[in-house]
Amino acid sequence: MNKVLAQQPDAASAAATPVIEFRGVTKRFGALTVLDDFNFAVAPGEKVTLIGPSGSGKSTVLRILMTLEPFQEGQLTLAGIPYHEPHGKGPFRASDRHLHQIRSHVGMVFQSFNLFPHMSVLRNVTEAPVAVLGLSRAEAECRAIDLLRMVGLADKKDHYPAQLSGGQQQRVAIARALAMRPRVLLFDEPTSALDPQLVGEVLGVIRNLASEHDLTMLLVTHEMRFAREVSDRVCFFDKGRIVEEGEPERIFTAPAEPRTREFLQSVLG
């Protein structure tokens, strides 16, 4: 069922140069330590799901990768580029230009979609390719229509976000992120803000993306069945660290750590 996994056993993916690598990263909010000496690597094309209780640091991992949050200690590299510059200043210890370069490899899908309410669906998807990548409007629209077709919303291109359902908005948000052609796509609880009957359509889009693209995907979710189905690897977080990780089958059927077992029992019922 999972072709990528079959071709890429754990040993091989660990041997490949990781596209994301956290080494001893520590992240604090004031006195609160959110990530504690955190180590984590993701191979190119790998689909990794982060699960765990809320407040365990899963979303923070994504927000750090997207440069929405700085971190204090340790090293983080994306496609070989370190986040901190040797003489970087400010909370991010890097220049705007350096952060800009890092962000060009990453995209993010937010829990609450965060579409631009004053722009049409098409504009939402074309704005960044035109303004940031320098595409012509025609090229950007071509790309946007393809992506909107892929998420099944080409007919809604002239609508405004407020005229769409939550599920449709999230699918537009996925198209918007993909339009920038990131190497790594981060999903921060993409279905948590949706009514239950709308979850399926968004998961469907992500599922197709996972099976058809060599995109590296990091997914924070509470949809356990979905996590089991799409990911190459599941990481269980607790208190700012990965307590246990492995193939989804094993994590979900035979978790080794008592904390993982407890968590899975509480969410799976």
Partner: peptide, 15 residues
């Protein structure tokens, strides 16, 4: 969230 979305799409500050 709007600023974060803009940042995730790599918009500059002026844009």
């Amino acid at each position: 969230a709007q600023r974060e979305a803009a940042r995730a799409l790599n918009f500059g500050r002026v844009h």
